[in-house]
Amino acid sequence: MNPKAAVVVYPGTNCDRDTYYALELAGFTPEYVDWHGDVKGYDLVVLPGGFSYGDYLRAGAVAAREPVSKSVRAYAEKGGLVLGICNGFQVLMEMGLLPGGLLENTSGTFICKWVDLEITDTDNPFLSRFKQGEKIKLPIAHAFGRYVKVGDPKVALRYVEDVNGSDEKIAGILSEDKNIFGLMPHPERAMEKLLGWDYGKNVFLSILDWIRGGNRVV
């Protein structure tokens, strides 16, 4: 049986269908869970990208306080696997599940392009299929992607070149226990070579390996 993945949908989320497609392609059985819902019982929870609540107040601020987010917190605190992509990363940060802040790009513009990235941590459920130091390409599409470092985050992904003014070119971080991964680039948009590169696939396959290895926590 394929592992079950929840794709959390807030009003304004717009990468939910891409994420669903990517999960299915990788071998998960995805289901949508809306902002009133509960993520209990899933093998993986994905917070996809988009503009939840129109980025009102701050990107991710309102979504972070919705009922489903409370269930994501409970799930994460029990050790459940949570992947936050782009706006999902911003939501996780607003929930306080990942350290730091995500503010407007220093260019002042929305940036939508493929970028070069370096994998800086492979000893985790999300990136085990990559090699330490491996250079990959993923697309970014954000206005609020400038990572402001607070404390000493576990950095898993860095931009090779400075693209948005992020501290130390940080593009993705893990929680202390490494069960939560937030990143600004979009692995779900890099699943097939037909669309450029398919480095994103290894993110979802790494998670699958981890779950199939009997590491399920929740």
């Binding site: 309102v62 730091g100 607070v150």
Partner: peptide
């Protein structure tokens, strides 16, 4: 609770 993000 909501209006300010004390981190930044």
């Amino acid at each position: 609770e909501l209006l300010v993000n004390p981190v930044v």
